[in-house]
Simulated assay, not measured.
Amino acid sequence: MTVYAFDETRRLLICTWDTGLGCVAAGVAELPLTATREDALRLADTLTGLSRQLWRTYTHPAGATDSLEVNTEGWRRQGEHDAFGTVIQALKEPNLPKDGYLTQSYIRVEEAAHRVGRALHKFDDAALAEQVIADVEAELGAVEHAERGDLSERAKQAVMLTRADASPLQVNAAHDLFREQPIGSEKLLHEVDPTAAAVAAAHWLQAAATISAGLMECDPSEVVVAADELEALAVETPTRVLERLGSGETPRDVVLDLIRTAMTAAEGRIADTTSLPDQARISLLDPLRPAHDLLEDLLDGIHGCRLLFHEYSEYDDDPEELAERLDVEFEAAVRAEAEANQDRLR
């Protein structure tokens, strides 16, 4: 999300967001000399709160729920997104205290916009209001671009968020990055949505495990455990993913289930109470950063498959040239396997 702050030295309202490679900042508006420090900080705080609610509609889309029927979670999420259309009007004409009472909305996006509007109202400055409104319009546009799978410019901050759904456009973008480098690359961590990247990574892990398992003459679900004996790796999560993929589940279904379970845990709830007796943790993933945690573990699993390929391949090459040749062969074999089963990503 975008964080707003008050630069006291320049009396400037600024905003900043993380791009995955670092944070960028931009000026929003100069504050009038009559503005108090308290009012400036309140405006920055309410804008940050609005951004948080706007981006929550991205991370928690209505389409990731089971139903949109009235009073369901999906219905509430859809209501939050529908409130995008009320934001600018709320900034211009916020609900203000009247006769000791204040009307507040149950819709978090709408109420967050009214809070910004009330903070702006304290300044009574048309130029400031115009600049803040322009920035909020840019924030609304960034969320909508991210929803469409376009993570350019301000929407780039989506690479730092975990989403309970995966854009097909972003899955394809991650898949293309794996085509270039089947063992994964840093671009997966800061150029694409992490949930979508994890979907593609699960597919490529299955391909890599199939290649290594062929050399070892074992089940693909056993390869990460075996590779852990060669080098310390994340074992539990990639192994569980391989087991589920081996049973016929798709990469998308497995990844979204794991991530949604972790997101539910982050909210203090348990996604499936019947699973508790069978597992030590309520989530395999870090609830604070589930998509990134999963992506890192899956890439670790692919690295383990590479280690096994080196260990079990027969060769009589010059040792100095061997590693490079085996990497080329491993990547070619994994690429061919992944492409041959590309329909699993649909």
Rank of each mutant, 00 (worst) to 15 (best):
T9L: 14
L13S: 10
T16H: 13
D18Y: 03
G20L: 08
G22V: 05
G22T: 07
V24D: 09
E30M: 11
A40I: 01
L43K: 07
D45C: 10
D45I: 04
T46C: 10
S51V: 06
R52K: 13
T59L: 09
A64E: 04
T72I: 07
G74Q: 08
G74A: 08
G74C: 06
E80I: 05
V87K: 01
N95D: 14
L102R: 02
Q104T: 15
Y106I: 15
R108L: 15
V109F: 05
H121V: 08
A126P: 00
A127F: 08
E130T: 11
Q131I: 01
V132T: 04
A134L: 07
L140E: 00
L140A: 02
E153L: 10
M160I: 11
D165S: 13
S167R: 01
Q170F: 02
V171D: 00
R179F: 10
R179Q: 12
E180D: 11
G184D: 00
K187T: 08
A197N: 07
A201L: 00
A202W: 04
L205N: 00
A207E: 04
A207D: 03
I211A: 03
G214T: 01
M216C: 12
C218Q: 07
S221W: 05
V223P: 01
E229G: 15
L230S: 12
V241K: 04
G248H: 01
G248W: 02
L256Y: 01
D257L: 12
L258I: 05
R260P: 00
R269V: 09
A271M: 07
T273K: 14
T273H: 15
P290T: 09
A291D: 03
D293P: 02
L294G: 06
L295E: 05
L299V: 04
H303F: 12
G304D: 06
F309R: 09
S313P: 01
E314P: 05
D318G: 04
D318W: 02
E320W: 12
E321I: 12
A323W: 14
R325G: 10
E329P: 01
V334K: 04
A336P: 12
E337S: 12
N341E: 13
L345T: 04
